[in-house]
Every structure is written in C-alpha cells, then in structure tokens.
C-alpha cells in the first residue's frame, strides 16, 4: 500500500517535470548568449547591469568558444537556439553559409572593441623590448639558417641574447595558450606571421605555396621552450610571477588587472597600454564581435534593450564600464557607425 503511494508520487513528479519542461521550451523569457571565452568577461558585465537596471531577466551567457558558439547559433531559427553568439574573430564564410543553410539569414554583426595580446614578465625582471621578428625567431619551430642562406633549420636559439644581441642573456621560456585557444590563433597570426614575413624570401613562398608558408610561420617549437599552460590565464600569471625568467602570453585584460605583479613587454617599440592599442600603434590586437539573430528580436523579450545597453556610451564608449574590464574601445567614428548599424539591425553579408 505504502509502496504504491510512493510510486504514484514519483510518477506524478516525473510527468509534471516533463510537462513543465515542454512548456518552457516553447517560449523563453531569458536571453541566451553563447560563444567566445574572450568576449565572455565583457558580455557578462553588460548582462549583469542589464539585469539589475531593467525588469528583464539577466541574460544567460555560455562560454563555449567561438567555433562552438557559431555551431549552436547557426543551428536554426527555433526558440531553443541561442539569440546571440560572441566571437573573438569575424564570422567565417563557411560559418555564414552554415547559418544560411539552416535558415538563419538575418544576422546583425556588432563590433564591440579590441583586445590586445601581450607578452609579459614579472615586475622583478627588467622590462623586455621585443620585436615581432625576435618573437618569431625565439618561438618558431624552424627558423632561417644562421649563415644567411635561404634555408630553414631547427630552432637553435637558447637565450634571448642569441636571438637579438640587445636582449638579456636569460633562457627563453615562454608560457602560452594551447592550440585550441583563440588567443593562440591570434598570436600565431599577428606576432609569429608578422615577424616571419619580414624575411622577403619567406614572404615570397606565400604566393607559390600558401600552406607551406603557414606551416613555416605558424608552427611553434616543441622542445619545451614554449610551454603550453592550458586555457587558464591566471595560472600563467602565477607562474611568471614566481619565475622572473619566464615570459607569458595572454589577453590585455589580464595584464590590466595584475599590474602589481607583471609588466607587458614592448613589441616593435610600443608598450601595451590602453591608448596604444586603441590607436593601433601596438601591433598585436584583434577585434571582438557578437552576432545577433534578428528573427528572435520579437520573440525573446529584452533583446532590443540589451543591445541598446551594450552599444551605449556608458558601456562600450571611450570611458564606459567595459574599458574598466580591459576592453579597448572603438574610435568615435567607428562607435557611431556600430550604434547606427545596431539600431537599424543591419543585415550581415559575407
């Protein structure tokens, strides 16, 4: 008798659960955002303030990585798909085509600002003055032969002084993100390739054999000089703080938050600072985006208001609260353009 009562309770419990689940799946009153872990720290700040200021629910921000976010975003127009996707690079043509194939054609692109990538070391060590060429020579798997001939040899450099006589004679030891990270992609593209193409004969390869060129410029050495420290940038900071000889590679916002422990190195004569990244004189920065599914604007309450908050002067502007979190703001013209595009839900075309 007691048993049958119990099982009836359990059954009603399950049925009501599934019923309520089905009901919530049909409509949604919480904005859902997916995508890049680099944009995550910024969109969460906006989401939190938006939730406090307005009567809408605080949006849910998932940190899935840029590629993973695009897959979810482009899966379709249904209400169970995310409304926005964060990206630490522009949407790829292949991703756009995937979107269009699944009926997601009306997308607005929002450029929110820039993120710098820094090479930093402990405050206890002297500040380094590096060039992209130095970094390429120090970290590439294969480097041009020492005798000046146009051949490649396995990277022989052990200390920074070997790379460039003006640098200190400390051992090269760099902690950085693994290949799965967007920061690593950007570092390879902006720093390694930037240094690599300063050799005219390597640059010439690009025209004849693009993949060989990429293999030369993007491959990082594997003899424990470049140490993959996982996706956690705080771990890299702790390690370079403990070991003054080591250098670390991570996003500018982490440098900005930890200036009591670490300092950013000069790259091509410019130190990573807010102003230098914003005006483009610091050479290693990348744009950050998010994408909006316009078909959801009427279906999920609060999207228009969330967009207004994100693109407002007090958030994304020159003195906005996002800059306190390390986002490099857009210039005034670009900012006005982006705000106008968002207001009119300008359709993305790739």
């Amino acid at each position: 008798m007691k048993k049958s009562v119990l099982s009836t309770v359990a059954l009603t419990f399950t049925v009501s659960l599934l019923a309520s689940a089905a009901a919530t799946a049909a409509s949604r009153d919480m904005i859902s955002v997916v995508g890049s872990s680099t944009v995550y720290p910024f969109s969460t700040v906006v989401a939190e303030r938006f939730g406090k200021k307005t009567q809408f629910n605080t949006p849910k921000i998932e940190s899935t990585g840029t590629g993973g976010g695009m897959k979810l975003f482009c899966a379709g127009n249904g209400i169970d798909t995310p409304d926005m996707s964060n990206a630490s690079r522009r949407m790829k043509k292949s991703e756009y085509e995937m979107c269009v194939e699944n009926g997601v054609t009306d997308i607005t692109e929002v450029l929110i600002g820039y993120d710098g990538i820094v090479v930093a070391n402990s405050n206890a060590a002297p500040q380094m003055k590096l060039s992209r060429k130095d970094l390429f020579l120090a970290l590439a798997d294969k480097v041009p032969a020492l005798d000046g001939s146009e051949t490649l040899i396995k990277n022989p450099y052990k200390t920074w002084k070997d790379v460039n006589a003006s640098l200190p004679a400390t051992k090269i030891e760099v902690l950085g993100p693994p290949p799965t990270s967007g920061t690593r992609d950007a570092f390879a593209e902006l720093v390694m390739e930037g240094g690599c193409k300063q050799y005219p004969w390597i640059k010439a390869i690009k025209k004849t054999d693009k993949s060989a060129y990429k293999a030369i410029c993007h491959s990082v050495r594997e003899d424990h000089v470049y140490i993959e420290a996982g996706e956690n940038d705080n771990l890299i900071i702790q390690k370079i703080d403990a070991n003054p000889d080591a250098m670390g590679i991570f996003g500018f916002s982490f440098l900005d938050q930890n200036t009591n422990k670490i300092q950013g190195s000069f790259i091509d004569g410019t130190a990573p600072s807010f102003a230098a990244i914003a005006d483009g004189s610091y050479p290693v920065s990348r744009p950050l985006f998010f994408y909006v599914k316009n078909s959801h604007v009427d279906k999920v309450p609060g999207i228009a208001e969330y967009l207004a908050e994100f693109t407002s002067e007090s958030a994304m502007g020159q003195m906005g609260y996002l800059t306190d979190k390390g986002l490099i703001p857009l210039g005034n013209d670009k900012f006005a353009e982006v705000s106008a595009d968002v207001k009119s839900y300008k359709m993305l075309q790739l």
């Binding site: 659960l17 309520s20 689940a21 939190e48 629910n57 921000i61 998932e62 940190s63």
Partner: peptide, 20 residues
C-alpha cells in the same frame, strides 16, 4: 555539463528544475 550548457554565467537563482 559543458555540452548541455550549464557552464554559463547565470545570475538569477534557479527555483525549479527547468530554470537555467
């Protein structure tokens, strides 16, 4: 939980089994 979207920034306190 990563695959099913529970690795996320969620501010509102969940009160039932279908809340984020």
């Amino acid at each position: 939980l990563l695959m099913i979207g529970m690795v996320a920034f969620i501010v509102d306190v969940p009160t039932n089994f279908t809340d984020a």
